[in-house]
Design a binder for these strands. Structure first.
Length: 222
DNA sequence: CATGGGATTGACT
DNA sequence: GTCAATCCCATGC
């Protein structure tokens, strides 16, 4: 269980750690606007272990990345445009955008309204609705067999396909759904590591990716 | 209005 | 390891 949490130093917070894990959320509750309204690195780290639900399917978050308007890998870096306006809206808003013309990528808008920041959800451990996920992911994707559970949601484009999260969710509320994220920590808190973000060409050295290192459902080893 | 780049994935060599 | 698929939107002419 948690040990000596009271001795954690403030410098950990600057690295995205928290001295008061999930202080703003109770077990099983939908995460609040206050949870998302904090520094994006804190939120990205604390979302590890929480559960995304949509359309009868759910999965535990095992991998995230933080994006902030102050660094050029973030879409909000260029300022407010028709595309990026959602990133500056209320904390707890869903930002969904299309990547490579094919995949919908799901983010949770963070920090107070007016600051462009979001956490990209990169991988889930499937929990509920697994058969439904297999249907959505399997047809037309694998020639010989349905995807193993391990690969159902092991990437940002895979998990949106598995949970049927689409562009129409962009700008929607994660507080009221249909997509929600709950604070449902497992009995054993995950061991979390930070590393560099995947698939970007700017600000490549920031270690703003967070993984449950012991998970078997990551997009890549943490 | 034309162009180009991307927070990716799956199939194939 | 390579590569095509293919949508949205920012930018520039």
């Amino acid at each position: 269980m948690a040990v000596a949490a009271t001795q954690r130093a403030p410098r950990n917070v600057a690295r995205g750690e928290s001295s008061d894990r999930l202080a703003h959320a109770h077990q099983g509750e939908v995460l609040s606007a206050e949870f998302y309204a904090r520094p994006v690195l804190e939120v990205a780290r604390e979302l590890i272990g929480c559960v995304v639900e949509h359309d009868g399917c759910s999965g535990r978050i095992v991998e995230t990345e933080a994006y902030h308007e102050s660094e050029p890998a973030c879409h909000a870096f260029i300022g407010v445009t028709p595309r990026t306006t959602v990133l500056f809206q209320e904390p707890g808003t869903a930002y969904v955008y299309r990547s490579y013309g094919i995949h919908a990528l799901f983010n949770a808008v963070c920090e107070p309204a007016g600051i462009g920041a979001a956490v990209l959800i990169r991988a889930l451990e499937p929990l509920e609705g697994i058969e439904h996920m297999r249907v959505r992911r399997g047809v037309g994707c694998h020639r010989h067999e349905s995807p193993h559970d391990r690969t159902l949601c092991s990437g940002p484009g895979k998990l949106t396909q598995a949970l049927a999260i689409e562009m129409s969710e962009n700008g929607g509320s994660l507080l009221h759904g249909p997509v929600v994220i709950r604070a449902e920590q497992p009995a054993q808190p995950p061991r979390i590591a930070s590393s560099t973000r995947i698939g970007i060409t700017k600000a490549v050295d920031l270690k703003w990716r967070f993984c449950a290192v012991d998970s078997r459902h990551l997009s890549r080893p943490g």
